[in-house]
């Protein structure tokens, strides 16, 4: 395990300290909790957004705390959902009187822990609503199961629901917009290498030099299948096809998130994006905006995911709204 860390058990706390040292203008940490909230929060009268999950997905979620996106982010242990008390603490700290929307990725652990936090908040009469992001099309037959995972598409929910809240929408409205975004976004990912959870000390799986893992989540879990490495164009085409098969994007305008999993250079993400664009162009799908970079990562995993969000006028306007956070700034 080659990592620049001090103690495997201390990575989350030390990282959060480093974040606060780097971005005091944006965030502060709640004493005693692994929670980042806006430096100048809570914002009175604004619906607050709290997201989070296991750590190891940086810049998600703390990097998106700031004007126009999140109000609070809860950092669990690496790839482990944060505990309810941590989430509850975040909710209390960010509530500006207009209620709190929890943005949860669809993992059993996240759902249960956030749900328990919501129950706690309820007991203290804080208005809490929640949405569950499940954008990963890799898992197909999911009717009787946990359902789809939430992966990189979550960032669109942060951006759009964040803008809705900033605009002054009430909790129901912000939730509606978040749910519309969730309904309109699909993602799929793949990887060339595993990643190593610091406390585990060994890679999450083994891949041969010519193999890749397809349809995998963001926690080092294996994917839906393994394949020989293809060209960037073939890989990208596979991801995009899967997404387009899943939802009807025809005639629509979309936003694209070409997301790196942490260890993939931007060069490769742009090469993939070239193919994403050309497929969408061929299909007559208009790209309104594209984001390329590391938004929802899996530690040092080399790999990528594509997310495609179908836009309507409302989503477009909210997506284009100003945002100012450590990891996402838009004029």
């Amino acid at each position: 395990m080659k990592k620049m860390i001090n103690h495997p058990e201390a990575v989350v706390e030390e990282m959060l300290e480093g974040v606060v040292k780097a971005h005091p203008q944006y965030v502060r940490k709640l004493e005693g909790f692994n929670v980042l909230v806006r430096a100048n929060g809570p914002v009175n009268g604004k619906v607050a957004l709290v997201s989070g999950g296991g750590s190891g997905h940086e810049p998600s979620h703390g990097g998106f705390v700031g004007r126009g996106m999140l109000d609070g982010a809860v950092a669990g242990a690496v790839f482990t959902s944060p505990t309810p008390d941590q989430v509850f603490e975040a909710v209390k700290a960010v509530d500006g009187g207009a209620g709190v929307l929890l943005v949860i990725k669809n993992y059993t652990g996240d759902i249960m822990n956030f749900e328990m936090a919501a129950e706690m908040a309820d007991m203290e009469n804080i208005k809490v609503a929640s949405v569950v992001v499940n954008d990963d099309v890799a898992v197909e037959n999911s009717t009787w199961t946990t359902g789809r995972r939430g992966i990189a598409g979550t960032v669109f929910i942060h951006k759009i629901a964040g803008a809705a809240a900033e605009k002054g929408m009430n909790l129901d409205e912000v939730k509606r917009v978040a749910e519309k975004t969730i309904a309109n976004v699909r993602s799929m990912g793949m990887s060339l290498t595993p990643c190593t959870v610091p406390a585990a000390g060994k890679p999450s799986f083994e891949l041969a030099e010519n193999e890749m893992e397809v349809g995998l989540g963001i926690h080092g879990e294996p994917g839906t299948h393994r394949d020989v490495i293809k060209t960037a164009d073939e890989i990208t085409a596979h991801l995009v096809e899967k997404i387009l098969e899943d939802m009807d994007y025809s005639q629509s305008e979309v936003a694209v998130l070409m997301n790196g999993l942490g260890g993939t250079p931007l060069m490769e993400l742009y090469i993939m994006n070239r193919k994403v664009s050309s497929i969408l162009e061929e299909r007559g799908i208009k790209v309104h905006k594209t984001f390329v970079g590391n938004f929802m990562t899996s530690l040092e995993m080399a790999g990528a995911s594509v997310s495609i969000l179908k836009l309507d006028e409302e989503l477009k306007e909210l997506l284009d709204a100003t945002a100012d956070t450590p990891a996402f700034t838009q004029l």
Binding site: P82, P84, Y107, M112
Partner: peptide, 12 residues
């Protein structure tokens, strides 16, 4: 357990 485990097994 609830306040230190997290994940799925913590709440369960």
């Amino acid at each position: 357990l609830i306040s230190t485990v997290g994940g799925a097994s913590g709440p369960l």
